[in-house]
Design a protein around this nucleic acid. Sequence first.
DNA 1: CGCTGATGTAAACGCTTGCTGACTTAGTAT
DNA 2: ATACTAAGTCAGCAAGCGTTTACATCAGCG
Lengths: 197, 197
Amino acid sequence: MTTLTPRRRDAAGTRQLLLDAARRRFASQGYSATTVREIADEAGVNVALINRYFSSKEGLFEACLTGADDELGRTVSADVPLDEVPHAIARQLAGPHTGRHPSLLLLLLRSSGDERADEIRLGILRSFAERLAASAGRPPDGPGAEQVLLRAQIALSAALGIALLRSAAAMEPLASAGEDELLEPLQDLIAGLLAGG
Amino acid sequence: MTTLTPRRRDAAGTRQLLLDAARRRFASQGYSATTVREIADEAGVNVALINRYFSSKEGLFEACLTGADDELGRTVSADVPLDEVPHAIARQLAGPHTGRHPSLLLLLLRSSGDERADEIRLGILRSFAERLAASAGRPPDGPGAEQVLLRAQIALSAALGIALLRSAAAMEPLASAGEDELLEPLQDLIAGLLAGG
DNA sequence: CGCTGATGTAAACGCTTGCTGACTTAGTAT
DNA sequence: ATACTAAGTCAGCAAGCGTTTACATCAGCG
């Protein structure tokens, strides 16, 4: 059988260490303000391994995005009723995992300037907005479809903006608001934007 | 008397050229992704003048922020009724000036990492949120004051998120939505978040 | 053992960055 | 004209960047 003791040399393990560290840095500081040496230091790993495992800084960033895509696809299911949407957003913004993973949403706002990476990023955001529109009972097409999608994108904007204001600015009381404190305002926001009319 | 003909060497003029170019670049690409040579080229001015007039890249960024502060104080008055807030936001996001000045709001989301600059930035954002809370009929203190301020900050988050999604992503139909198309959803959002309850 | 491929390390490469100092040019007053 | 100052130019520096190359070390296997 293969070894059960943690290998001192574990390619997949250090790869993951790099991915985690990179995601934290990219999310909190943005792409170009983050240096590969920072990432390597935070991961406790040699700098050259970034290029070995991900070809380039760009490649590492893309890997972070696709990883975020997978995670988002797992946690946020497709057909959640509109009532549950505020819960999901509040959990994503201030859930118990927030310490370790500084809001996956932030990463989706960071651009590297690279075209391919930006396509991935925009693709995730688009599908996010479309799922939101579907939850709002949007018909796949029809007269009001565009309006509902627009409103879903605005709701997504709000979630992303909150993530940014909590992190990049330390705007109180928003920055310290817990999951439950965010829930009520988010419910009213979603209700006004996607349910009422 | 002093000369009335436009001087070919005009310190105040080139200073303003640099400020305008810098604001465009910083807003659209962020601080660290923007190089001083880019700014100088876009302004049609020699690179060294940035350091002459603003001491450093950081100084130029701070000057952009204080300039944005002045402009915001002029355009957005203190006591606008809540009904007018959606108009003001829609105008700021997609008004006729949007081509030249890529949404002042974007600049307020860009961090340079410098402490002083970030204090200025956060100060502008805070006062923005407080004006919003005041429009929502918030009493200066009292039991519900914190909640109203939190909701105002969430409304501000939405505006900032929209600016970001229109620019950094090119998310349709949000990115191409005009002032009038944004107005209705924003009215519903503000109504649900700050008026209703 | 000795060999081999995978994993990690160290040092440097070439390039871009923000910034500087010595210089030239334009405008004005004497 | 001459001298003086403000405004703009130019070449280059030191530092930091992403990346690469050459080397060391370990695991697995005959």
